[in-house]
Amino acid sequence: MIIGASSGIGAALARSLARRGYALALLARRADALDALCQELNAAAGETRAAAYTHDVTDYELIPGLFQKLLADLGRIDSVVYAAGVMPTVTFTEYNFDKDKAMADSLLLGAMAWLGQAATLFERMGEGQIVGISSAAGDRGRVLNPGYAASKAGFSAYLESLRNRLTRRGVNVLTVKPGRVDTEMMRGAGITRGLYPADKTAEAIARAMHKRKQVVYIPGWYRWLMLAIIHTPSFVFRRLKF
């Protein structure tokens, strides 16, 4: 089950997992994009492998009912991937609460609403996997887009808490921290250089899911970059411009 599957990493991951034989429930706001993806996946597989559900993750109050409907439709759910979210362009001097709220709503609160349901199910089942597409951007509060960094930092912390609660119940929680991935969201925010391909990102996530990893940076060398960034002293970090 992939929430936020109509484009970007979510869509690429749907393709990767479908190739690996997963049966998929895909959720997203944009019905047309989602439908097209579903048709593509089912045509490629030669059988019904993906089902589409339109949904806006900020409709929090609907989520418990939707989760139950999905569970009844699918019979069982093995993995839940949260890949939804928006990243509006924020200038260097801009402090826009609406934009910040839109990010916190979709990146963090929507994740809490959905993954809380998933956690309940997996805890009772004693098995399952939660995958959160967080971001390397959440590792440090940088000058660019404070709302995004804060939402992703919150999401990463939420995932870590879930991991610490659920590992003992047989559930794996995977935090994915991509760098700059070639997605609509990135290009929409005006970032076009040094982008890592979405399909490669998806393959890396699928591999990490299979190996039941806990935290994965994509591309892999970001782990060392972020290690350096995390340990950069504040008096230096305050003077940087990224």
Partner: peptide
């Protein structure tokens, strides 16, 4: 395409 709309959970 299934539309997921205003449905409250029926099973506790």
């Amino acid at each position: 395409m299934s539309k997921l709309n205003g449905r409250t959970p029926t099973l506790p």
